[in-house]
Nucleic acid binder design. Structure first.
Length: 881
RNA sequence: GGGCGAUUAGCUCAAUUGGCAGAGCAUCCGGUUUACACCCGGAAGGUUGUAAGUUCGAGUCUUACAUCGCCCACCA
């Protein structure tokens, strides 16, 4: 059904008023739900990467929202049953840290208020802050199905998490045991390898003497002297002439005087440091492995908070850094130190807290992950899952092929509590372990305190949110999902784990395509950070310019997988583009004159400019389709902008005024239909990029649906694409440009109408039939065709494009000398180009080996240049002698 | 130590199978042309980091080097 255009279009798009109104309109009509499509429609599903529940919107969220909403809106317009499933993540460590900070400010702590009260306070915090991020996503225009919103700790998802854990346990893939882990002393929890970030820092390297039984000393260096207290051996290379004789002798831990062996191992690098190595299996990953090989024991010298424990003797109770100083001072006094020197090395820090992480022995839950990883490798290898851009597949393989067992347990309070119970047996409090949904029958069972790594629940997200492990209707219809769009920084944390878990639990890859976007950086390539004060707050931008300009800028600023620098001037440019599109719609709207033209007139009735703009439009649609197919949304957006701003608005819209202002009724009708068609198609193409303005503007055109969000995506009509029409028109537009320049050079008042003359040839006859092009674009009122034998007019400037020469009579204004100079310059320029083309065509290799169409294009070009040069030569001869 | 990316106009970035290097911002000149001054018309600005190679032809493919950034890795 064709709907009439709304009238009284406002002068500007008032985004402040319109955005919330349009968003409610969409939401209330249920357009965001997959049920808006016919029941048999093909589904298209994206699981939103769940933001931290207590977080607030930053530029990264804005980027993923813009991209995912674009994909969803595009597929929705293509008739799919689209589901963008939103939700939030409980984000164990991050959230617990925030609540702990809050408690600290109150002068309290989680230990002080206890487990129950802490959880209560955290849920309270979640209720207060959890909604913020959601409403911020909505302000950006996210067309999610909010009725299906999930939270990783809600009931259904928690059950999925426990079920997954129990299944893995039953399959023998989960085990519990003491291992050396990365320990975060401030949070007092284990963290996984991925959660540790190390970067180079300036530290001190301490050189000292290790006393050996024979009265000799072994020189050793360390960056962490306090770990001396946990040494279980001193190691040297078996081939090291200097120290070889000491292997097998006893050495004595400084100050403690504990006896340890000197061992030989080829792991030791003779050329590094002193060539001798202290071995601390309890607090260093390398030393742990070395210790295993030599049957050394493990001595833990740290408490949970990284203070020294009883094994540190007189240093017990000291903080590790204080211990470092005291011990070193004591060793100095004992004459055991050699020297200290500044040293640069990588220091491991917790990704969240930023504190230095200590390798420490502790008993944790692990997932034996190789069987899962093997499936995940195969899925990408055989193409069931594609990663865009492809180069990340290599990174993905490398990680999975070298994967370590996953430490699943965290000593936090906020998270999914591991469904395990212990019962004392033979004095061992963990003598019996039971894993299951409910506590086992019988007395004495104590529930596990630890919670699961946040990323464990995230790994289940694509199917847990759809109802798994129940065989729900949503799971059947919407799983597997289609595209996973997220940042490349969480390829391991999240993407790889979703693929592993999805394949393991559902037998299917959770999505067929992974689209990875880059990080948004500030100008100069710096990371956005609050402390640097260079963070662009997306909400401030939305307040100032609206959501559309932010979205358009983010999408057109980068290419897949590459970090992009957000240039704030582009935001203003996008804003102006949106205004431009609005104004174009307004122009068409005010010229509709109450009618509701829809559908193109028969092609035979179209004039050259109309056929040209339709050809250009449908070429654009074809290009945009290609670019969408290969995920190059930014380039697609830029091409749409270029078409509208550089071709449709300045040329066709201008030319159309000729018919609109003084054409016949039939001419007006034809032009209106073309204008409406082009603008309508452009608004459709732009809708996924800038949903608000386009939805509002669309209502001011005659249209065939109730809302743009559900309108059909444009299809290129190859029958409208016409190379010949485009070539002719672009030649005429070149004449327009030259005429404008010439007028400018002669300072002809822009408002003054002039005439033009041309000899009567095929090209000029065609142009004369389309003189309205010249009239509207360069104020040339009339083109008179002269017989070929008529002399060219005196006192005329001339503009030449190809074989067309226009004479512009400029009575009394023509400066012969200047005109000759102008023509001479033009000739020189042309000769340069001709020479280049001629050279190429003279190259036999080029003519024989280049693709035929490339050669032909060069020939055409050469001919055209030659024609223009001939015309100029003639003109020079007659005017300038 | 491995791997990846980047290097194009003053700045931020494009360039679809190799085929005359393009935008925005900034700069300069000119404009109250009845959709838009949130605008219009023009101009200038590049040996595509360096050096070789493949090719009729290279920003694009190959190799080396340089600078910057990121990821992974057990050197005290």
């Amino acid at each position: 059904m064709v709907r009439s255009a709304k009238t009284d279009m406002p002068r500007n798009f008032d985004f402040v008023e319109a955005e919330p109104r349009i968003y409610s309109f969409w939401a209330e009509r249920g357009y965001f739900k997959p049920e808006a499509a016919p029941a048999d429609a093909e589904p298209f599903v994206i699981s939103m990467p769940p933001p931290n529940v207590t977080g607030s919107l930053h530029i990264g969220h804005a980027l993923f929202t813009a991209l995912e909403d674009l994909m969803i809106r595009y597929e929705r317009m293509r008739g799919k049953a689209t589901l963008w499933l939103p939700g939030t993540d409980h984000a164990g460590i991050a959230t617990q840290l925030q609540v702990e900070n809050m408690l600290r400010e109150e002068g309290s702590s989680r230990e002080e208020i206890g487990y129950e009260e802490f959880l209560h306070r955290t849920w309270q915090w979640k209720e207060e802050h959890g909604g913020e991020i959601i409403s911020q996503l909505q302000r950006l225009g996210a067309s999610c199905d909010w009725d299906r919103e999930r939270f990783t700790l809600d009931e259904g998802l928690s059950r999925a998490v426990l079920q997954a854990f129990i299944t893995l346990w039953e399959q023998g893939l989960v085990y519990r045991g003491p291992r050396l882990v990365n320990w975060s002393p401030g949070l007092k929890t284990a963290v996984s390898d991925l959660e540790v970030e190390s970067s180079e820092e300036e530290v001190t390297l301490y050189y000292f003497r290790y006393p050996v039984e024979s009265g000799e000393h072994l020189p050793v260096a360390t960056t962490r002297p306090e770990t001396i207290l946990g040494d279980m051996a001193v190691a040297v290379h078996p081939a090291d002439e200097r120290y070889r004789h000491l292997i097998g002798k006893r050495a004595y831990v400084p100050i403690l005087k504990r006896e340890i062996p000197v061992i030989g191992d080829e792991y030791v690098d003779m050329d590094f440091g002193t060539g001798a190595l202290k071995v601390t299996p309890g607090h260093d990953f390398d030393d742990y492995a070395l210790g295993q090989r030599h049957g050394l024991g493990i001595l833990n010298i740290l408490n949970m908070d990284a203070s020294m424990n009883a094994n540190a003797g007189k240093y017990a109770g000291l903080d590790r850094y204080e211990c470092r100083e005291r011990l070193w001072a004591d060793m100095q006094a004992a004459g055991l130190t050699i020297k200290t020197e500044p040293y640069t090395t990588r220091i491991p820090r917790s990704q969240r807290g930023g504190e230095v992480v200590e390798p420490m022995m502790s008993t944790q839950w692990y997932l034996r992950i190789q069987p899962l990883a093997d499936k995940a490798i195969a899925a990408v290898r055989d193409g069931r899952v594609k990663i865009v851009p492809e180069r990340f597949e290599k990174v993905y393989f490398h990680w999975l092929e070298n994967i370590q067992d996953w430490c699943l347990s965290r000593q936090l309070w906020w998270g999914h509590r591991i469904p395990a119970w212990y019962r004392e047996n033979d004095g061992d409090p963990e003598g019996e372990i039971y894993v299951g949904m409910e506590a086992p029958a019988g007395d004495g069972w104590v529930m596990e305190q630890d919670v699961l790594d946040t990323w464990f629940s995230s790994g289940l997200w694509p199917f847990s949110t759809l109802g798994w492990p129940q065989d729900s209707a949503d799971l059947k219809r919407f799983y597997p999902t289609q595209v996973m769009e997220t940042g490349h920084d969480i390829l391991f944390f999240w993407v790889a784990r979703m693929i592993m878990m999805g394949l393991w639990f559902t037998g299917e890859a959770p999505f067929h395509t992974v689209y990875l976007h880059g990080l948004v950086r500030a100008e100069g390539g710096k990371k956005f950070s609050k402390t640097l004060g260079n963070a662009v707050d997306p909400l401030t931008v939305v307040d100032r310019l609206g959501a559309d300009p932010l979205r358009f800028t983010l999408i057109t600023s980068g290419t897949p997988g590459n970090d992009c620098h957000l240039d704030e001037t582009r935001l203003d440019h996008s804003f102006r583009f949106i205004n431009k599109v609005w104004q174009m719609t307004a122009f068409i709207n005010m010229n509709l004159d109450g009618e509701r033209p829809l559908g193109l007139p028969p092609q035979a009735e179209l004039d050259l400019p109309a056929r040209w703009i339709l050809s250009r439009l449908h070429r654009l649609i074809a290009n945009a389709q290609y670019l969408f197919d290969i995920y190059q949304y930014g380039e697609a957006g830029n091409q749409i902008l270029a078409f509208m701003w550089d071709e449709f608005a300045p040329f066709y819209l201008e030319i159309s005024k000729e018919a609109l202002y003084q054409g016949s009724a039939a001419e007006k009708d034809r032009v209106r239909r073309v204008l409406v068609h082009v603008q309508d198609q452009c608004l459709r193409l732009l809708h996924p990029f800038m949903p608000f303005m386009t939805e509002e503007a669309w209502a001011y055109l005659p249209r065939d649906g109730e809302a743009l969000i559900l309108a059909d995506w444009p299809q290129a009509d190859s029958g409208l694409i016409d190379d010949d029409v485009e070539a002719r028109m672009s030649g005429y537009l070149e004449l327009v440009r030259e005429t404008r320049n010439t007028r400018g050079e002669y300072k002809v008042d822009p408002g003054r109408r002039i005439r033009a003359l041309a000899h009567d040839r095929a090209g000029t006859r065609d142009l004369a039939a389309n003189v309205h092009i010249l009239r509207r674009l360069c104020n040339v009122d009339e083109l008179r065709l002269m017989p070929l034998d008529e002399a060219e007019p005196a006192n005329s400037a001339s503009v030449v494009v190809g074989d067309v020469t226009l004479y512009l009579p400029l009575e009394g204004m023509l400066d012969i000398a200047a005109e000759c100079q102008r023509l001479a310059d033009e000739e020189a320029k042309l000769n340069g180009q001709i020479e280049r083309a001629a050279k190429m065509l003279a190259n036999r290799n080029f003519v024989e080996r280049a693709r035929p169409d490339v050669v032909q294009r060069e020939r055409d070009r050469h001919a055209e240049l030659e024609a223009a040069a001939a015309q100029i030569k003639e003109r020079l001869a007659s005017l300038c002698g």
